[in-house]
Simulated scan of single mutants.
Amino acid sequence: MEHVEGKTAFITGGARGIGLGIGRAFAGAGVKLAIADIDNDSLASAKSELAKLTAVETFNLDVRDREAYARVADETEARLGPVSILCNNAGVAAATRFTYEFWDWMLGINLNGVINGIQTFMPRMLERGGEGHIVNTASGAGLVAEGSSVMYSTSKFAVVGMSEGLRRELEPKQIGVTVLCPGPVGTNIVGNSRITQPAARDAEEAKTWAAVTDQVTAVLARGVPPDEVGEMVLVAVKENRLYIHTDRVMEKYIIARTKALLDALPPAR
Protein backbone atom coordinates (compact mmCIF):
# COMPACT_ATOMS: atom_id res chain seq x y z
CA MET A 1 0.00 0.00 0.00
CA GLU A 2 2.31 2.69 -1.30
CA HIS A 3 -0.14 5.56 -0.77
CA VAL A 4 -1.52 5.69 2.78
CA GLU A 5 -2.53 9.34 3.05
CA GLY A 6 -6.27 9.65 3.69
CA LYS A 7 -6.64 5.97 4.62
CA THR A 8 -8.10 4.91 7.96
CA ALA A 9 -6.12 2.75 10.39
CA PHE A 10 -7.52 0.90 13.41
CA ILE A 11 -4.91 0.29 16.13
CA THR A 12 -5.54 -1.83 19.23
CA GLY A 13 -3.44 -1.08 22.27
CA GLY A 14 -2.97 2.19 20.45
CA ALA A 15 -2.85 4.67 23.32
CA ARG A 16 0.47 3.51 24.77
CA GLY A 17 3.79 1.94 23.88
CA ILE A 18 4.27 0.47 20.41
CA GLY A 19 0.66 1.19 19.48
CA LEU A 20 1.09 4.90 20.16
CA GLY A 21 4.36 4.84 18.21
CA ILE A 22 2.48 3.36 15.25
CA GLY A 23 -0.21 5.99 15.63
CA ARG A 24 2.34 8.80 15.59
CA ALA A 25 4.00 7.46 12.45
CA PHE A 26 0.69 6.99 10.66
CA ALA A 27 -0.60 10.40 11.74
CA GLY A 28 2.52 12.02 10.35
CA ALA A 29 1.79 10.29 7.03
CA GLY A 30 -1.76 11.64 6.89
CA VAL A 31 -3.57 8.48 7.98
CA LYS A 32 -6.84 8.87 9.89
CA LEU A 33 -6.75 6.99 13.19
CA ALA A 34 -9.07 4.90 15.30
CA ILE A 35 -7.28 4.21 18.57
CA ALA A 36 -8.58 1.41 20.79
CA ASP A 37 -7.30 0.74 24.31
CA ILE A 38 -8.56 -0.10 27.79
CA ASP A 39 -6.96 2.91 29.52
CA ASN A 40 -9.20 5.97 29.30
CA ASP A 41 -6.57 8.43 30.52
CA SER A 42 -4.10 7.23 27.89
CA LEU A 43 -6.80 7.38 25.23
CA ALA A 44 -7.52 11.00 26.11
CA SER A 45 -3.83 11.87 26.05
CA ALA A 46 -3.28 10.12 22.71
CA LYS A 47 -6.24 11.88 21.12
CA SER A 48 -5.11 15.28 22.38
CA GLU A 49 -1.68 14.72 20.81
CA LEU A 50 -2.58 13.02 17.54
CA ALA A 51 -5.62 15.17 16.71
CA LYS A 52 -3.18 17.99 15.97
CA LEU A 53 -2.00 15.97 12.97
CA THR A 54 -4.99 14.02 11.69
CA ALA A 55 -8.59 12.95 12.33
CA VAL A 56 -8.71 10.73 15.44
CA GLU A 57 -11.42 8.74 17.19
CA THR A 58 -10.77 6.79 20.39
CA PHE A 59 -12.55 3.77 21.83
CA ASN A 60 -12.35 1.88 25.11
CA LEU A 61 -12.14 -1.73 23.93
CA ASP A 62 -11.21 -5.05 25.47
CA VAL A 63 -10.11 -7.01 22.40
CA ARG A 64 -11.55 -10.21 23.91
CA ASP A 65 -15.09 -8.81 23.63
CA ARG A 66 -16.34 -9.70 20.14
CA GLU A 67 -19.66 -7.88 20.42
CA ALA A 68 -17.95 -4.70 21.56
CA TYR A 69 -15.40 -5.10 18.75
CA ALA A 70 -18.16 -5.22 16.12
CA ARG A 71 -19.85 -2.18 17.62
CA VAL A 72 -16.60 -0.20 17.70
CA ALA A 73 -15.85 -1.20 14.10
CA ASP A 74 -19.23 0.16 13.00
CA GLU A 75 -18.65 3.40 14.89
CA THR A 76 -15.15 3.77 13.47
CA GLU A 77 -16.24 3.40 9.87
CA ALA A 78 -19.22 5.69 10.37
CA ARG A 79 -16.95 8.45 11.68
CA LEU A 80 -13.71 7.94 9.74
CA GLY A 81 -14.62 5.88 6.69
CA PRO A 82 -13.60 2.33 5.76
CA VAL A 83 -10.71 0.82 7.68
CA SER A 84 -7.95 -0.09 5.23
CA ILE A 85 -5.14 -0.71 7.75
CA LEU A 86 -5.69 -2.93 10.77
CA CYS A 87 -3.02 -3.08 13.47
CA ASN A 88 -3.68 -5.90 15.94
CA ASN A 89 -1.24 -4.62 18.51
CA ALA A 90 -2.83 -5.07 21.95
CA GLY A 91 -0.96 -7.60 24.04
CA VAL A 92 0.13 -8.59 27.53
CA ALA A 93 3.36 -9.92 29.02
CA ALA A 94 3.68 -10.70 32.70
CA ALA A 95 4.67 -13.25 35.28
CA THR A 96 2.32 -16.24 35.12
CA ARG A 97 1.50 -19.49 36.82
CA PHE A 98 0.26 -22.66 35.15
CA THR A 99 -3.51 -22.42 35.58
CA TYR A 100 -6.42 -22.37 33.15
CA GLU A 101 -7.12 -18.83 34.32
CA PHE A 102 -3.72 -17.64 33.11
CA TRP A 103 -3.88 -19.56 29.84
CA ASP A 104 -7.26 -18.00 29.12
CA TRP A 105 -5.99 -14.53 29.97
CA MET A 106 -2.77 -14.69 27.94
CA LEU A 107 -4.26 -16.40 24.88
CA GLY A 108 -7.47 -14.40 25.14
CA ILE A 109 -5.63 -11.13 24.58
CA ASN A 110 -2.48 -12.07 22.65
CA LEU A 111 -4.07 -14.56 20.25
CA ASN A 112 -7.85 -14.31 20.34
CA GLY A 113 -7.60 -10.52 20.34
CA VAL A 114 -5.76 -10.75 17.01
CA ILE A 115 -8.28 -13.26 15.67
CA ASN A 116 -11.14 -11.00 16.71
CA GLY A 117 -9.59 -8.06 14.87
CA ILE A 118 -9.14 -10.11 11.72
CA GLN A 119 -12.63 -11.61 11.86
CA THR A 120 -14.14 -8.18 12.46
CA PHE A 121 -12.38 -6.20 9.74
CA MET A 122 -11.12 -8.66 7.12
CA PRO A 123 -14.58 -9.49 5.70
CA ARG A 124 -15.27 -5.76 5.35
CA MET A 125 -11.99 -5.26 3.47
CA LEU A 126 -12.72 -8.19 1.16
CA GLU A 127 -16.27 -7.06 0.45
CA ARG A 128 -15.19 -3.53 -0.47
CA GLY A 129 -12.21 -4.66 -2.53
CA GLY A 130 -9.15 -2.55 -3.14
CA GLU A 131 -5.95 -2.37 -1.15
CA GLY A 132 -5.75 -3.20 2.52
CA HIS A 133 -3.13 -4.18 5.06
CA ILE A 134 -3.10 -6.11 8.35
CA VAL A 135 -0.28 -5.75 10.90
CA ASN A 136 -0.13 -8.31 13.70
CA THR A 137 2.17 -7.64 16.64
CA ALA A 138 3.93 -10.83 17.72
CA SER A 139 7.41 -10.89 19.27
CA GLY A 140 10.90 -12.21 18.82
CA ALA A 141 9.56 -14.79 21.28
CA GLY A 142 7.20 -15.87 18.51
CA LEU A 143 10.18 -17.05 16.48
CA VAL A 144 12.32 -18.61 19.19
CA ALA A 145 11.23 -19.76 22.66
CA GLU A 146 14.18 -18.14 24.38
CA GLY A 147 13.92 -16.22 27.63
CA SER A 148 10.13 -15.89 27.61
CA SER A 149 7.34 -17.66 29.46
CA VAL A 150 5.73 -20.71 27.88
CA MET A 151 2.35 -18.99 27.67
CA TYR A 152 3.78 -15.86 26.07
CA SER A 153 5.77 -17.82 23.49
CA THR A 154 2.75 -20.00 22.72
CA SER A 155 0.60 -16.97 21.99
CA LYS A 156 3.23 -15.24 19.89
CA PHE A 157 4.26 -18.33 17.89
CA ALA A 158 0.58 -18.67 16.97
CA VAL A 159 0.41 -15.07 15.78
CA VAL A 160 3.48 -15.55 13.59
CA GLY A 161 2.09 -18.73 12.01
CA MET A 162 -1.31 -17.16 11.49
CA SER A 163 0.26 -14.12 9.84
CA GLU A 164 2.35 -16.22 7.46
CA GLY A 165 -0.67 -18.27 6.42
CA LEU A 166 -2.93 -15.25 6.16
CA ARG A 167 -0.46 -13.47 3.91
CA ARG A 168 -0.60 -16.31 1.37
CA GLU A 169 -4.38 -16.36 1.59
CA LEU A 170 -4.87 -12.63 1.13
CA GLU A 171 -2.08 -11.72 -1.28
CA PRO A 172 -4.18 -12.38 -4.41
CA LYS A 173 -6.88 -10.12 -2.96
CA GLN A 174 -4.66 -7.03 -2.56
CA ILE A 175 -4.49 -7.26 1.22
CA GLY A 176 -0.99 -7.35 2.63
CA VAL A 177 -0.02 -8.90 5.96
CA THR A 178 2.89 -7.95 8.19
CA VAL A 179 3.99 -9.56 11.44
CA LEU A 180 5.92 -7.37 13.85
CA CYS A 181 8.46 -9.37 15.89
CA PRO A 182 10.02 -6.83 18.23
CA GLY A 183 12.91 -7.36 20.56
CA PRO A 184 13.19 -5.09 23.61
CA VAL A 185 11.19 -1.89 23.12
CA GLY A 186 10.97 0.93 25.64
CA THR A 187 7.43 0.34 26.87
CA ASN A 188 5.72 -0.45 30.16
CA ILE A 189 3.97 -3.55 28.80
CA VAL A 190 4.61 -5.65 31.91
CA GLY A 191 3.31 -3.00 34.28
CA ASN A 192 0.32 -2.29 32.05
CA SER A 193 -0.44 -6.00 31.80
CA ARG A 194 -1.04 -6.24 35.51
CA ILE A 195 -4.22 -4.19 35.06
CA THR A 196 -5.99 -7.22 33.58
CA GLN A 197 -3.76 -10.00 34.96
CA PRO A 198 -5.40 -12.51 37.30
CA ALA A 199 -4.82 -11.59 40.93
CA ALA A 200 -1.88 -12.88 42.93
CA ARG A 201 -2.68 -15.71 45.33
CA ASP A 202 -0.93 -14.06 48.26
CA ALA A 203 1.39 -11.25 49.30
CA GLU A 204 4.51 -13.27 48.52
CA GLU A 205 3.44 -13.92 44.93
CA ALA A 206 2.50 -10.26 44.52
CA LYS A 207 5.97 -9.28 45.74
CA THR A 208 7.62 -11.66 43.26
CA TRP A 209 5.53 -10.30 40.38
CA ALA A 210 6.43 -6.72 41.32
CA ALA A 211 10.12 -7.61 41.26
CA VAL A 212 9.76 -9.27 37.84
CA THR A 213 7.93 -6.21 36.54
CA ASP A 214 10.71 -3.90 37.70
CA GLN A 215 13.44 -6.12 36.21
CA VAL A 216 11.81 -6.56 32.81
CA THR A 217 10.79 -2.90 32.56
CA ALA A 218 14.41 -1.90 33.22
CA VAL A 219 15.58 -4.15 30.37
CA LEU A 220 12.90 -2.83 28.01
CA ALA A 221 13.82 0.76 28.84
CA ARG A 222 17.16 0.18 27.10
CA GLY A 223 15.42 -1.08 23.97
CA VAL A 224 14.30 0.58 20.76
CA PRO A 225 12.05 3.64 21.26
CA PRO A 226 8.38 2.98 20.34
CA ASP A 227 8.39 5.84 17.83
CA GLU A 228 11.17 4.13 15.85
CA VAL A 229 9.10 0.94 15.79
CA GLY A 230 6.15 2.95 14.53
CA GLU A 231 8.21 4.23 11.61
CA MET A 232 9.28 0.65 10.83
CA VAL A 233 5.63 -0.37 10.68
CA LEU A 234 4.76 2.49 8.35
CA VAL A 235 7.55 1.49 5.96
CA ALA A 236 6.51 -2.19 6.12
CA VAL A 237 2.93 -1.31 5.20
CA LYS A 238 4.03 0.86 2.29
CA GLU A 239 6.46 -1.79 1.02
CA ASN A 240 4.27 -4.80 1.88
CA ARG A 241 6.92 -6.52 4.00
CA LEU A 242 6.05 -9.73 5.82
CA TYR A 243 8.44 -9.49 8.79
CA ILE A 244 9.59 -6.59 10.94
CA HIS A 245 12.53 -7.09 13.31
CA THR A 246 13.36 -4.14 15.54
CA ASP A 247 16.93 -5.30 16.26
CA ARG A 248 19.22 -8.33 15.94
CA VAL A 249 18.84 -9.59 19.52
CA MET A 250 17.30 -12.90 18.41
CA GLU A 251 19.68 -13.52 15.51
CA LYS A 252 21.83 -16.27 17.04
CA TYR A 253 18.78 -18.01 18.47
CA ILE A 254 16.98 -17.95 15.12
CA ILE A 255 20.08 -19.39 13.45
CA ALA A 256 20.39 -22.12 16.07
CA ARG A 257 16.71 -23.05 15.84
CA THR A 258 16.80 -23.14 12.05
CA LYS A 259 19.90 -25.35 12.14
CA ALA A 260 18.24 -27.71 14.63
CA LEU A 261 15.17 -28.00 12.39
CA LEU A 262 17.26 -28.73 9.31
CA ASP A 263 19.49 -31.20 11.16
CA ALA A 264 16.40 -33.10 12.29
CA LEU A 265 15.27 -33.77 8.71
CA PRO A 266 15.69 -37.35 7.49
CA PRO A 267 18.45 -38.02 4.95
CA ALA A 268 17.63 -37.11 1.37
CA ARG A 269 16.56 -40.08 -0.77
Results as ranks from 00 to 15, higher is better:
residue 203 A to R: 14
residue 204 E to S: 14
residue 205 E to I: 04
residue 205 E to L: 03
residue 205 E to W: 07
residue 205 E to C: 03
residue 206 A to C: 03
residue 207 K to D: 03
residue 207 K to V: 03
residue 207 K to M: 11
residue 208 T to V: 13
residue 208 T to Y: 14
residue 209 W to I: 04
residue 210 A to Q: 13
residue 210 A to R: 14
residue 210 A to S: 09
residue 210 A to Y: 12
residue 210 A to T: 11
residue 211 A to V: 09
residue 211 A to I: 11
residue 211 A to D: 08
residue 211 A to Q: 12
residue 211 A to R: 06
residue 211 A to L: 11
residue 212 V to L: 09
residue 212 V to H: 05
residue 213 T to G: 11
residue 214 D to T: 15
residue 214 D to C: 08
residue 215 Q to R: 06
residue 215 Q to F: 11
residue 215 Q to Y: 12
residue 216 V to E: 05
residue 216 V to C: 07
residue 216 V to I: 15
residue 218 A to C: 08
residue 218 A to D: 13
residue 219 V to L: 14
residue 219 V to R: 07
residue 220 L to E: 14
residue 221 A to D: 14
residue 221 A to T: 09
residue 222 R to M: 15
residue 222 R to V: 11
residue 222 R to C: 13
residue 223 G to Q: 07
residue 223 G to T: 01
residue 223 G to K: 03
residue 223 G to Y: 10
residue 223 G to H: 10
residue 224 V to E: 05
residue 225 P to G: 06
residue 225 P to E: 06
residue 225 P to K: 15
residue 226 P to A: 13
residue 226 P to M: 09
residue 227 D to P: 12
residue 227 D to H: 07
residue 227 D to M: 02
residue 227 D to I: 06
residue 228 E to I: 12
residue 228 E to R: 15
residue 229 V to N: 04
residue 229 V to D: 02
residue 229 V to A: 08
residue 229 V to W: 03
residue 230 G to P: 14
residue 230 G to Q: 07
residue 231 E to K: 07
residue 231 E to N: 03
residue 232 M to Q: 05
residue 232 M to Y: 00
residue 232 M to T: 04
residue 233 V to S: 01
residue 233 V to C: 09
residue 233 V to A: 05
residue 234 L to G: 13
residue 234 L to F: 10
residue 234 L to Y: 06
residue 235 V to R: 15
residue 235 V to S: 10
residue 235 V to P: 00
residue 236 A to H: 13
residue 236 A to N: 08
residue 236 A to W: 15
residue 237 V to E: 01
residue 237 V to I: 10
residue 237 V to L: 02
residue 238 K to C: 02
residue 238 K to Y: 00
residue 238 K to H: 00
residue 238 K to Q: 06
residue 239 E to S: 12
residue 239 E to Y: 07
residue 239 E to W: 06
residue 239 E to C: 09
residue 239 E to N: 13
residue 240 N to G: 01
residue 241 R to F: 04
residue 241 R to I: 02
residue 243 Y to H: 07
residue 243 Y to C: 05
residue 243 Y to R: 06
residue 244 I to F: 00
residue 244 I to T: 01
residue 244 I to H: 01
residue 244 I to K: 00
